[in-house]
Computed example of a mutant assay.
Amino acid sequence: MHSTSALAPDTTIAIVGAGRLGGVLARALRAAGFVVIGPLRREDRAPDADIALLCVPDSAIPAVAFAVRPHARLVAHVSGATPLADVDFSLHPLQTFTGTETPEVFRGIGVAIDGRTPEALEAAEQLARVLGANPFRVGDAHRAEYHAAASFASNFVLTVLDAAEHLAKDAGVDRAHLAPLVRQTVENWAASGAAPALTGPIVRGDEATVARQRAASADYRDLFDALATATRAIAGRAPHATTADHAATTEEPPA
């Protein structure tokens, strides 16, 4: 095994955990030229490696890290929420995975890293850059906020989209027709933030339309109310609605 901090081309990396991310990381690191062992199951015998990269559930990290520690120079996990108490560094790709992705999935994405020593932090940064990703540091003190942000940006978005899909289905509209709206909304948010990108009846002050929407959302009433309250807070930061915007909610459609 290597003893220098730099990752040599023949660095050996053991991927422990054969789930979605473990398989994708193994393919990507192998394509980058590293010697990759795995992905291994948690119960497999730990091999000797320069780096043991744990792609296991957060609750399993302490035990698996303890098991592989005698066999690896550096031990790392890919959790966004778990501190570094049991490992040397962390590498959390800020992306959602199905397990079928090609190595290109890492190109251009953000990767949260941290390390307990300069050597470990350097290894995390180098791995992220080799994957084509953009590393940024998140320390233990801010992991909860960071991981909550990731859940809002991905998991909870799907919760909202599931409600939208069911309501659209009740109206005879396929979710494919909602997809361009979702994509453009995300593009607008990415370009300028939520307040400038916000459109719709709440930011226009059209409470009559909001009330009709609420009545139509009976199966999602609690979710609608929570989102409407949060959206009103965003609307308070948004530029004032234009006269044309207001007219669009009050004029009769053409015959």
Rank of each mutant, 00 (worst) to 15 (best):
L121D: 03
L121G: 04
E122L: 14
E122P: 10
A123L: 06
A123F: 11
E125W: 14
E125N: 13
E125Y: 14
Q126L: 15
Q126I: 14
A128S: 15
A128C: 04
A128Y: 01
L131Y: 08
G132E: 10
A133P: 04
N134D: 10
P135S: 08
P135T: 13
P135I: 08
F136V: 00
R137S: 14
V138S: 05
V138W: 06
V138Y: 04
G139F: 05
G139Y: 13
A141Y: 06
A141Q: 09
H142E: 15
R143W: 01
A144E: 08
E145A: 09
Y146K: 03
Y146L: 04
Y146V: 08
Y146A: 07
H147D: 08
A148S: 09
A149S: 08
A149K: 02
A150Y: 07
S151Q: 10
F152H: 09
F152C: 06
S154F: 03
N155K: 04
F156D: 09
F156L: 09
F156E: 12
V157K: 00
V157E: 01
L158G: 10
L158D: 13
T159F: 02
V160Q: 11
V160G: 07
V160E: 11
V160F: 11
V160P: 07
L161W: 11
L161K: 13
D162M: 11
D162T: 12
A164L: 06
E165I: 10
H166T: 13
L167W: 14
A168N: 05
K169N: 13
K169T: 14
D170S: 10
D170G: 05
D170C: 07
G172I: 11
V173Y: 00
V173T: 05
R175S: 07
R175F: 07
A176M: 15
H177D: 11
H177V: 15
A179S: 13
P180W: 03
P180T: 02
P180I: 02
L181N: 07
V182G: 01
R183I: 00
Q184H: 12
V186F: 07
V186I: 00
E187C: 07
E187I: 15
E187K: 01
E187W: 07
N188T: 12
W189Q: 05
W189H: 06
W189Y: 11
W189E: 06
S192L: 06
G193E: 00
A194E: 01
A194R: 01
P196Y: 01
P196K: 03
A197Y: 01
L198H: 00
T199W: 09
